[in-house]
Design a protein around this nucleic acid. Structure first.
Lengths: 139, 139
DNA sequence: CCCGAAGATGTTATAGAGTAACATCAAATG
DNA sequence: CATTTGATGTTACTCTATAACATCTTCGGG
């Protein structure tokens, strides 16, 4: 009956995300898995990602329609994401206080918060210093 | 040369969003506009939405792939969104301090913030009190 | 041992969101 | 008038995500 445990495929997807320096889309992962499982379909990828998300091992990046692995050090709650629009890297900022401030703010207006999504686009230290200031900021 | 002004179509889309009690997808807007402009295509909708967003009149809801009108009272900057997963309503919380706290947090880790996206899913006052606590929380 | 329930997984197909590429039109300018 | 430049129209497509249904597996009860 109980089978919400992670299987080999789940672990493989998690490994892909851990190895990547940028968020990967579900279809990036699909392509990656096709080497080992040629007939795997999008549904299977999304089912795995849902499981991994519940386990706190991956987090979806809403503004990129993509996925990242969560560092094992961090607690299982979602974190604040700093997304570099230049190199695509995503830093996970462990700022419980900030998340609390956000949920407090909406609570103050009578809302009952459940799942905060906090993503900040901009440029990482390296990209900010390296290149000229003219940039495009994709959604 | 100058023609970044809003045209009748832009205003019509804005009016649709103002009249709606929930966020509308670009394709909801497309369907709505088809009554007046039967041959209008998705591209036109997105071009209008981009213009309206730059003008501070609409805001995209990243976690819903949908759009809302911004209350004229609020400044043109994006606001914190409180999204009810039960009735679908979105409240725009004007909490400049919270947004500042978020950008400060990522700045502290060396990031150069540019565009914060803060969306909190949960339940509004009415839905929280009205119904039983078993709910689904769509992405 | 067999059967049936219940969840997991496979498979097919399609819905929904967004954009690329190119044609056409319209206004301004010299 | 000819040309340039930006806006808009049009077609077609890519990418993201899920619905719907088939199949398999596991396990408990008869």
């Amino acid at each position: 009956m109980a089978a919400n445990l992670l299987n080999a495929r789940d672990m493989a997807l998690h490994a892909c995300l851990c190895a990547a320096s940028r968020p990967l889309s579900a279809y990036d992962l699909l392509d990656a898995r096709r080497a080992a499982e040629p007939r795997i379909a999008p549904t299977a990828i999304y089912r795995s990602l849902t499981k991994l998300e519940k386990a706190g091992l991956v987090q979806r990046v809403a503004t990129l329609n993509a996925w990242i692995a969560r560092p094992p050090k961090l607690p299982a709650e979602p974190s604040v994401l700093a997304i570099c629009d230049s190199c695509g890297a995503v830093e996970q900022v462990a700022e419980a206080g900030v998340i609390q401030a956000v949920t407090d703010a909406v609570t103050r207006s009578g809302f009952h918060p459940n799942r905060p999504v906090i993503e900040v686009h901009g440029h990482c230290t390296r990209c900010e210093s390296e290149t000229d200031p003219i940039r495009s900021a994709p959604r």
